[in-house]
Amino acid sequence: MAYIEPLFPFIEMSVIILALVLIAAFLVWVERRMIGIWQDRLGPNRVGPGGVLQSVADLLKILGKDEFTPKFSDRFTFVLAPFIGAITVLMSFAVIPFSQSIGVSDLNIGLLFFLAMTSLAVYGVVLAGWSSRNKYALLGGMRAAAQTISYEVFMGLSMMGVVLLAGSFSLRDIVEAQQHGWFISSQWLGCLVFLVAGIAESHRLPFDLPEAETELTAGFHTEYSGLKFALFFLGEYLGVTLISAMTVILFFGGYLPPGFLADTLFAELPGIVWFIIKVLFFILFFILLRTSLPRPRFDQLLAFGWKVMLPLSLVNLLGTAILRLTGVLGGGNV
């Protein structure tokens, strides 16, 4: 055991990465199935019970595609770009506390690490658009850069109220600070801004402007196929899971059970179970948005960010600071 113990972090990390990849593949089926239900149609129902093996069929089809790289592209950057998108999102999960004892790393700057990784993820999309030497892909990459840079500002500001209340940038400390009440009760405005910014950061409908099919063919991944195309999809679904997990951690108590169930048998459930239930709720919320809302124009998206999201995030931060200093809101030592 003495020889195996140093390997425990690597084993835990490998298990978490494998689980995340499998979850991302499973979410492809969940999304298509749920959209089918909400739109009053069947959805995938041929491969396996209820179409549950549809993701496996899709994966085999993608792996069977030719690994085509256009001659006019910048070959090295073209191949590198999809790996940047997938790896940066996977690295963000290193600071996620899945339960009291499950998590790769408990950094005291975990929140800043999350912001850094989400900032780096945009390079994959931008480089994909630029290296493709395709006008539609280039426009998609430029949209992604402008969209991400804009909404990163509001995402960061929306989380500062939580930092003021918890007194720490550590995600585990933020969860533990919600022992006596979730932050959503006082940070509902910050939660709203964070969710909108998270949707924009993950390029999901209604903010999927970088890959708008009706305007840009497929946007930044127009020239991609095979495994490289699959990596972009992996990064997108991992991004949805990541934003859902961060929403749960920052505003909904993470792996902690709801307060009204504290004296019931449900409170005895492992923290990982509560965490998964909450994250699944927000993933379904992301999917429902895709079926419900139309896509805005790109100028409307940026105007909404700077004219609406920025003032709301500043009002939330200022209000939280005032209430914290006056003692109305409790929290850790900042």
Rank of each mutant, 00 (worst) to 15 (best):
S92W: 12
P44H: 00
P97I: 01
I272Q: 00
Q100E: 15
P82T: 03
I276G: 01
M117S: 10
V193N: 01
I37A: 09
D263I: 00
W182D: 11
F10S: 15
A218Y: 13
I35R: 11
L280D: 06
S73W: 00
L59Q: 03
L269D: 00
L164Q: 03
G259M: 13
F285T: 10
T88W: 14
V279R: 00
N108S: 11
A230V: 11
P49G: 04
V273K: 03
F8D: 13
V28R: 15
D106V: 08
L280A: 14
L317P: 00
L302V: 14
R133S: 13
S158L: 12
Q187F: 11
I16L: 14
S202Y: 00
F114G: 02
L20I: 06
V240W: 08
L171G: 13
D299A: 11
F229P: 10
S150V: 10
T88H: 11
P82H: 05
V47I: 13
V240Q: 12
V21N: 06
Y255L: 07
D66C: 04
A145I: 02
F282D: 04
W29K: 01
A146C: 00
I37H: 09
G330S: 04
L112T: 13
K61Y: 01
L310Y: 09
G156N: 04
L205D: 07
I276V: 12
E211V: 05
E12N: 14
T222R: 02
K278H: 04
M155C: 02
G64Y: 03
R295W: 11
A81V: 05
A321D: 14
V162D: 02
I4S: 12
G36R: 00
V122K: 11
L80W: 06
V15M: 15
K307E: 06
V30F: 14
I11N: 13
L20S: 09
L20V: 07
E31D: 14
E213K: 08
A218I: 07
I62H: 01
L234T: 10
A166H: 06
K71S: 10
F220H: 15
K71G: 07
D263Q: 10
E213Q: 10
A86G: 09
P9L: 13
E236S: 14
L164T: 10
A230D: 06
G181F: 01
Y237L: 05
L60Q: 02
A218M: 10
S14D: 11
E268C: 05
D208R: 03
F76V: 11
R75V: 05
L280W: 03
